[in-house]
Write a protein that binds this DNA or RNA. Structure first.
Lengths: 199, 199
DNA sequence: TGTACATCAGTGAACGCGCGTTCACTGATGTAC
DNA sequence: TGTACATCAGTGAACGCGCGTTCACTGATGTAC
């Protein structure tokens, strides 16, 4: 009863996606080699044909998440004409992404990444820095164009932008999704938009 | 070579404190029964004279953290005369607490609590809810007195208050303390104060 | 095109480690008469 | 106050479980001549 034989490139993608799905459905504590293999109908040992170890799988999942964050920023900018509209669009996309794929916050706030091996943690750090940097660019654009106040640094405002959502995502995760993230995001955007308006 | 024999009440406090210190120094991944016992010069099995199991120790640590949060709110209100001054004082105290006791964010954002047993997670949820509730009370006070805008709910503003710090604390944790939380908190308070000023 | 060989992606069994937990036991502390 | 007994807080050894990982092996896929 052998599983179909597929290319490593394909399996790597499957494994990373299976890991993310697993975290979404069962929580980060259930992220294990055997569980991932089960999901794909593979023997546990088969995983090691495609990844050196667990850390590298977590790394691949982070790459997956990073790609979606980057795509969100790009699409938000492409679909809008002003920096403010881009930020609002990004906020909406971010909420939708996190809501429809709860594995993302679950993994990011689990010890798996936060307290994980130095390599994984550094990768996560770079992921967040990258995201913040892209947001800061959009904000800096707005500052140059005069639609966003310039007396506060773009990087600082970018951190605040993330601050709109983060507590909401955590609260929602804690009470099992009862907390209404979308509603909070709408309110949060309103306040943020006022806050960053030119003086 | 037996350790001194102390009352359970004393040992319980020691154990909870040792657990928190351990997380502060080594990270949440290192939080284990053997490690806690070592710190107190006890045999691992002695811990079970005072706690039924690990979950209850984590619960006791959460109680410790909760007590400090509550104390911060009370002292902030007592030391000031206006709701706005109270919030600013609380923010400063919160930063100082988290900075001087890095076990708090490390534990709270570790899978230990976030993905832990339902009981622990619910306790954490109540801790945050309680903190938010107390902050919301202060804000509501300000709204009644006219020093804080009333067109946004006190609960919503309380979540935003936490949002000032949370991303900063996480960033600082990720890059090993290089990110300057205090500086961000000052900037954040300035923006928050403008945001919640009456229209 | 056919044959010989290397590589690659699968299998299941087993290992080793660390963790939370249990157990029988000991001697100090507290209590009853 | 002294004695007998119960309780309590300590010990070290061992258990059991689950996890990440390794290994020898198999048969399919790809390649060289």
């Amino acid at each position: 009863v052998a599983a179909p034989r597929l290319k490593t490139a394909v399996r790597r993608e499957q494994i990373a996606q299976a890991a993310l799905d697993l975290v979404a459905e069962q929580g980060a504590a259930e992220l294990g080699m055997a569980r991932i293999a089960d999901r794909l109908g593979l023997a546990t040992s088969a995983i090691y044909r495609h990844f050196p170890g667990k850390d590298e799988i977590v790394g691949a999942v982070l790459d997956l998440i990073d790609a979606r964050f980057v795509a969100n920023v790009k699409e938000s900018c492409r679909a809008t004409t002003s920096p403010m509209a881009c930020l609002e669009s990004l906020l909406r996309r971010h909420v939708a992404l996190v809501k429809s794929n709860s594995g993302i916050p679950r993994l990011l706030f689990s010890g798996e990444v936060f307290c994980g091996s130095p390599g994984v943690r550094e990768q996560f750090s770079r992921l967040i820095s990258g995201y913040l940097g892209r947001i800061a660019e959009v904000i800096a654009d707005g500052q140059r164009g005069g639609s966003i106040r310039s007396d506060v640094g773009a990087a600082t405002l970018a951190v605040h932008f993330l601050g709109i959502l983060q507590p909401a995502v955590i609260l929602s995760h804690l009470d099992g999704g009862r907390f209404d993230v979308e509603r909070h995001a709408v309110q949060g955007w309103k306040l943020f938009a006022e806050t960053i308006a030119p003086r």
